[in-house]
């Protein structure tokens, strides 16, 4: 009986996380257009609904009703599978993320985490990196040269940033001694001065840079950069299949924003009089805004520059950081 109850609770939580994050992702597309527009002294979408808010409904209708094209020479099963891999892996990764502090509804304590496994951090990063299989499979099955170039760049990208994100996060883990995101959050309870950001500034910077590469955002959006390879892996995609890739991308952005907030910026611990849930929302919003800000402000890098910076600059820095942390801890 209790086993069934746990299963039902888990399913309800999973559905809530899925729908809320998908909604936030859709909303983030509108925010992105608005923020980019303001930074370039334009207005962005203004015509559909008040201040253009309903633009996302219009986009949704467009994506769903668009003709779904599968190229003749493409490998159909893999071509269909690729966007599903991209979207699911982004959402599966969220299973181990605690979003808010636990709260009580009608005398029942709710833990806002789908599954509290004690290697949560490793799980989230591992599963999120499976998401790069989406672009890879899409590029290789499309039978299109631009797509294949995008797929090749996807391999280059994951081989570059995986090492940096893994090594950079190792130093904070050494200090905390646990891979559970809840432990990491509790380690920083007690105000802004306890944030790991102050003790591990280098790891924070490296992890943030690797996060930009992992979510495939500008300046590291090498796998779909229009000016070089048309639309990279997504060249042959249309309609909702194309949309699924971007649902995955925005879900990944939210995951990285939550991860950075929990590991380095104090997580959902309350600050002064602001309750934890609102603090968390503010931090995640700030990170989403930062993703857009960087996109508007920075030029894009070439794939060889990405590899160069990851292997020759960031990885040695991460290793030095681990060494110093180890010496200090011993």
């Amino acid at each position: 009986m209790s086993e069934t109850a746990v299963i039902i609770e888990t399913i309800v939580k999973a559905v809530v996380v899925l729908s809320v994050v998908a909604g936030m992702g859709a909303f983030a597309t509108w925010i992105e257009r608005k923020v980019l527009a303001f930074m370039q002294r334009r207005l962005g979408p203004m015509h559909v609904g008040p201040y253009g808010v309903l633009q996302l409904a219009a986009d949704g209708i467009k994506l769903f009703t668009k003709e779904d094209i599968i190229p003749q020479n493409a490998l159909k099963p893999i071509f269909v599978l690729a966007p599903i891999v991209a979207a699911t892996s982004a959402f599966v990764a969220m299973a181990a993320i605690p979003y808010f502090p636990e709260f009580t509804v009608f005398g029942y304590t709710v833990h806002p985490i789908v599954s509290d496994i004690n290697v949560a951090l490793l799980y989230v990063m591992g599963v999120a990196s499976v998401g790069i299989y989406g672009p890879l499979l899409a590029g290789m099955s499309s039978a299109n040269k631009w797509s294949l170039l995008g797929a090749a760049r996807a391999v280059v990208q994951i081989l570059s940033f995986e090492v940096v994100s893994g090594l950079s996060v190792l130093a904070p883990i050494m200090m905390i001694g646990s891979l559970s995101l809840i432990d990491i959050n509790d380690f920083q309870s007690g105000g802004v001065t306890n944030w790991l950001l102050w003790k591990q500034p280098l790891a924070f910077l490296l992890f943030a840079i690797a996060g930009f590469a992992e979510t495939n955002r500008s300046p590291f959006d090498t796998i779909e950069f229009e000016a070089e390879i048309v639309s990279g892996f997504a060249t042959e995609y249309s309609g909702m299949r194309w949309g699924l890739f971007f649902v995955g991308e925005y879900a990944n952005m939210i995951t990285i924003a939550v991860l950075v907030s929990i590991i380095f910026m104090g997580g959902y611990n309350p600050i002064w009089f602001i309750p934890g849930a609102i603090v968390m929302l503010l931090k995640v919003s700030f990170w989403i805004f930062l993703f857009l800000w960087v996109r508007a402000a920075w030029p894009h890098v070439r794939p060889d520059q990405l590899m160069w910076v990851c292997w020759k600059v960031l990885m040695p820095l991460a290793l030095v950081n681990i060494l110093i942390t180890g010496i200090v801890l011993v």
């Binding site: 496994i117 004690n118 290697v119 490793l122 799980y123 990063m125 591992g126 599963v127 990196s129 499976v130 790069i132 299989y133 890879l136 290789m140 294949l148 797929a151 090749a152 391999v155 994951i158 081989l159 995986e162």
Partner: peptide, 24 residues
């Protein structure tokens, strides 16, 4: 054995990614 499970995912994602590169 969550740790081994996650390591399985992480290791084989990277390893098979290299296989894809050769296939390409």
């Amino acid at each position: 054995a969550e740790f081994l499970g996650v390591v399985q995912i992480v290791v084989y994602t990277g390893a098979i990614m290299a296989l894809y590169a050769f296939g390409m």
